[in-house]
Each structure stands twice: as structure tokens, then as C-alpha cells.
């Protein structure tokens, strides 16, 4: 146990630099997946055949490709087409795209859960489709969507570790580097696990809060 504390003091600063990148990757890809997911979902419910077909196809393609392959593709293949980006950019883009499919399905479920009468009432006062979405449907869908959205946040936090495969020195990669140079596998990976857990706990509490709020309605 004493050895563990000593290792903690020694490795924590290095691991913390990994935490910073983990947080950047998580937040960056969370924002991107939210925006893309909302676009896919709105295309899907637009009632315009081409758009909803395109969205459905896109979602299936994204869902069918492992995140790690998507990351490799962006980081190692895209440069061959003249598109180069940093590992961090590729990680955020890849995770953002991968998770946009799940976000889209979640958002769509929330939108479709809104009573049709709400849409008719909005139309009856002359609102356009965009106004109906912005003023009537989405504000109500948010409450339904938030609990699963919180779960996606937790999953993204953990899946940000996949960025390590394309050299982003986030928490998991920092841990692996320390472990392979010191052979203190137990201390290092216990520490890494605890740090992921520590970051997850606030999110888990947030989800519980969302769920309680949704249940009250």
C-alpha cells in the first residue's frame, strides 16, 4: 500500500497531463457529436424522402464501423488524399462522427415522443417547420433526451481512451507509457482506472439528476 502511495505521488503529475487531453477529447467530440447528431435527427424527421433516407444510410454506415477503424482512417488514410490533421483533431473528429449516430437515434426518439397535437397547434398558428422544431418540439424533447445523453457522455469519456491508438497522449496512453517504462503495472493501471472513475462519478450523478427530473414530469 505504501508503495502505491509513493507511485501515486510520482506518477500523478504525468497522468494529470493525460487527464487534460482526455477532457479535451471528450468535450470536443461530445460537442461535435451533438451538433452532427442533431443534424442527422432533423434530416430524419424532416419528412423529405431524400434527406431522411440519406440520414438513415449515414447512421447505419457510421454505426457499422468500429471507432478504432474510423480513427485509423482519419489519421492514417486521409493524409493520402491530402487531408492531414493532428492526432488530437483526428481523435475529436473520429469520436464525434462515431457517436453522432447514437446521438441522432436518441434525439430522433425524443422528437418522435412529442405529441402530434403539439406540432399541429404550432402549424395552426402559422409556424414554419423550423419554427415548430425550435420553439415547440426541441424544448420539450430535451427533457426526454437528457438521461440517455448523460449516458453517452460517460461512454464518450471512456471511449476517449481509443484516441491513444493514434498517439494522442491522453490518460490511457500516458498510463501505458509509464507502465512500460517502470513495469509498475499494478500501481499505474489502478491509478488510471481510479482517475477515469473519478471523472465518471459527477457524470453518473448528473444522469441520476436528469432521470429524476424526467420522471417527475
Amino acid at each position: 500500500m505504501q508503495a502505491f502511495w509513493r507511485d501515486t505521488v510520482e506518477f500523478l503529475p504525468i497522468l494529470m497531463s493525460g487527464v487534460a487531453l482526455t477532457i479535451i477529447v471528450t468535450i470536443g467530440s461530445l460537442l461535435l457529436s451533438t451538433v452532427l447528431g442533431l443534424i442527422w435527427a432533423l434530416m430524419r424527421v424532416s419528412g423529405i424522402g431524400v434527406l431522411s433516407g440519406l440520414s438513415a444510410g449515414l447512421i447505419n454506415v457510421i454505426r457499422g464501423i468500429p471507432i478504432i477503424v474510423l480513427l485509423f482512417y482519419l489519421y492514417f488514410v486521409m493524409p493520402e488524399f491530402g487531408v492531414t490533421m493532428t492526432a488530437l483533431q483526428a481523435a475529436i473528429l473520429g469520436l464525434g462522427i462515431a457517436y453522432s449516430a447514437y446521438q441522432a437515434e436518441n434525439f430522433r426518439a425524443g422528437i418522435e415522443a412529442i405529441d402530434k397535437g403539439q406540432i399541429e397547434a404550432a402549424q395552426a398558428i402559422g409556424m414554419s417547420w423550423a419554427q415548430t422544431m425550435r420553439r415547440v418540439v426541441l424544448p420539450q424533447a430535451v427533457k426526454i433526451v437528457l438521461p440517455p445523453y448523460g449516458n453517452v457522455m460517460i461512454m464518450m469519456l471512456k471511449d476517449s481512451s481509443q484516441a491513444s491508438t493514434i498517439t494522442v497522449a491522453e490518460l490511457a496512453l500516458q498510463g501505458k507509457l509509464i507502465a512500460s517504462s517502470t513495469f509498475k503495472n499494478t500501481s499505474v493501471f489502478t491509478l488510471v482506472a481510479l482517475m477515469y472513475l473519478t471523472m465518471s462519478i459527477p457524470l453518473i450523478l448528473l444522469v441520476r439528476h436528469f432521470e429524476k427530473r424526467a420522471a417527475r414530469k
Binding site: E120, I125, R135
Partner: peptide, 30 residues
Amino acid sequence: RTQVSMVFQRFNLFPHRTALENVIEGPIYV
């Protein structure tokens, strides 16, 4: 639709807005 309003069987008020906000929604945004 702005000339011919409709009142529904199930009211269809916007639950996330107050009574007054429901009333002014059309005049302000449409």
C-alpha cells in the same frame, strides 16, 4: 393559418410555456 385559427379537442397548449407565453407565441414569432 394566421387568418383562420383553430381550437383543438385536447387543447394542445405548449406545456413548457406559461399561459401568457402560449398566447403571444404566434403574434411574436409568426
